[in-house]
Design a protein around this nucleic acid. Sequence first.
DNA 1: GCTAATATACCGACCGGTCGGTACAGTACC
DNA 2: GGTACTGTACCGACCGGTCGGTATATTAGC
Lengths: 210, 210
Amino acid sequence: MSEKREQIIEAASQIIHLKGFNNTSIDDILQRTGVKKGNFYFYFKSKEELGFAVLEHLIGEFHRRCLAPIQASADTPFNKMIRVIDALDSEQAKAQCCGGCPFGNMALELSDLHEGFRQRLEEIFRGMAQLFQSLLKDAAGELVEGVDLEEVSQFIVAVVEGGIMLAKVHKSITPMRQCFRQLKQYLSTLRRGPIDASGSAQWLGKRNTQ
Amino acid sequence: MSEKREQIIEAASQIIHLKGFNNTSIDDILQRTGVKKGNFYFYFKSKEELGFAVLEHLIGEFHRRCLAPIQASADTPFNKMIRVIDALDSEQAKAQCCGGCPFGNMALELSDLHEGFRQRLEEIFRGMAQLFQSLLKDAAGELVEGVDLEEVSQFIVAVVEGGIMLAKVHKSITPMRQCFRQLKQYLSTLRRGPIDASGSAQWLGKRNTQ
DNA sequence: GCTAATATACCGACCGGTCGGTACAGTACC
DNA sequence: GGTACTGTACCGACCGGTCGGTATATTAGC
């Protein structure tokens, strides 16, 4: 991979994260990088291709910065899950509630406009849910029985995305923190633990109980 | 209010809901309504003004179609809350997972681009949370003690928005339904009820327990 | 070791088209 | 005859993308 290509993708990722895909012009990216237009179109055949490259870059960054250190740690699977949520929290705090989740942003912007982007984003969200699901699965020994892991993992993704949205629109981390705290308390009810292992909490997250 | 003005707002609301604000052109709206450009700028001094009018229109529609019938019903406050969630569910189903939540869409698109829109959207989200909070407050008699109503209501908003996002990107109501079912089960743990009123569930949603 | 050929990297002018917005003449109604 | 409304022509800025052409480094043939 060319270094300049990576440099374009890096800059484009940042601008698109803040301004959205359609609202980011090629000229915005050229101005930031100093790359000239003819050169840009040597590396990317279209803005669309850049968009896909940006998605891959963002996934890689997220894995490298947030996931990998936690996965490599000695924590229990359940605590890893909590730490992922905390990592997302500190990401938003660091960004001062600007940008939000780049995947959530692009999902809402593009899902009804561009089927190709929608499919890639669907895969990304599926991956997010599967990350939580595999952590929950690894934590099965820590959990009460009858928990629908797929459903709970989807729920976690929704709370995370919804919480980040609230932070972005309120320009405050408080509402997101409130949501995440509720989520953690909810998750702790799935845990076989000192509070209540066999009583009322066990049915939470069960299938077909409604 | 002029009838034609309302007609423009109605059409603009639909298009903006599907394509986003910046990605909807004035010409899109003119084509849909048959209104000519000079006429449009007689009723709206700018696209921005139209955007604010669209937000007001969407709020009105949401109240009229989803909230008012439920508020006027004889249900208990707690059941009203459940019915609001169900109403949001059927809205997404009816739209075949297209569009998503217009407020969530615009919040993610515009919060970092336009401070005026951000502020109005923040108010709207505050209103959503307050709606749930007031229902929870009215349901206080049905609830266990020590529930942080503000925090829980914020949590509900996040799950709703996150769930709708998942429906939109997956083009399926299933992930959203899963989230909403988890949410309802969570809410039922806040309820003073036959399952467990004084045991493990009461601490859910409490402040400062972490 | 020189030259010719080739691939990669880069440049900036330019394209057709669209954007939000304006100017202004015409018209319908009181 | 004024006022509220409507239609059309038009504006400059910007959009994504293309174009012909250049600089440079590598390689091949002799």
